[in-house]
Design a protein around this nucleic acid. Structure first.
Lengths: 134, 134
DNA sequence: CTCAACCCTCACACCGATGTGAAGGTCAAT
DNA sequence: ATTGACCTTCACATCGGTGTGAGGGTTGAG
């Protein structure tokens, strides 16, 4: 599949797909005419990249994580250096921190919303628009 | 407490603390000499801000979330517009997405590490019990 | 053959988060 | 009164992720 299709299927701009490649995150093969040729799995990979970027990880880190994120795993253990293991463990911890922070805040928002909506439908507060509380 | 102490206690640069203020995230009072005066709760708030920024949220969003993140909640319900509720709900959903993505990836890393470590010290006989191999 | 719709590379531009430093005010200790 | 460690504002710089467009090649349909 060419870049346009992948862009459309992943909701990414062509520009970004080329940027990801420049950053070493994806390496599509090239057709005889120089066009990038993407394979089906790239769709998932790109979504993965987008998600991680959105969650604040820099491309440098994502590049290190990607090799261990495709599930039907073929691990060439000898290739996995102790430094790599170290990096992964650190990154895992950082991910956990992020998750904890986000979860804490999401729950706080949930509490807040619950309180607000409860009080609002309790009726002692006049409000201009229809109180949709379901 | 002055900016220097807050910076030290939160592991933030003074520059950033001023930036957060400029973005409307914190509003310290001012001493007679013009110095910023922070209160104890600001320590927590700044940590909150840092965590959310690190998790990829822009200051614009954080500004909207902060008012509902301090736990002993005093909600002035009349001030909570329906648009605000809407925003919060959307943001809550986005947080959940992020959490899901991060969790998925963290778990994938965990799986990977487990496999690598198991193979590395178990040889051909993969072991299920806690693999302490260092 | 021509035209539209793709693709390529390259480069400049923006925005948000952050660093750095200049020019100057305040305060506490010597 | 001077010095050093704070603080102030202002402004320019950097870096990563993105947008946009110029200038040009490929392909497929009419």
């Amino acid at each position: 599949m060419k870049i346009g299709e992948l862009a459309e299927r992943t909701g990414t701009s062509r520009r970004l797909l080329r940027y990801y490649e420049e950053q070493g995150l994806i390496t599509p093969s090239r057709g005889i005419n120089g066009y990038r040729e993407y394979q089906e799995p790239h769709v998932y990979v790109v979504q993965q990249i987008k998600g991680l970027l959105d969650a604040g990880l820099p491309t440098r880190i994502i590049r290190e994580l990607l090799p261990c994120l495709d599930k039907p795993q073929t691990i060439y253990v000898p290739d996995v250096t102790p430094e790599m293991v170290d990096t992964l463990q650190r990154e895992q911890a950082r991910l956990s921190e992020r998750i904890e922070c986000l979860t804490r805040n999401r729950d706080a928002i949930a509490d807040y919303l619950e309180t607000v909506l409860k009080v609002r439908c309790g009726g002692d507060t006049p409000q201009l628009s229809p109180a949709r509380c379901d």
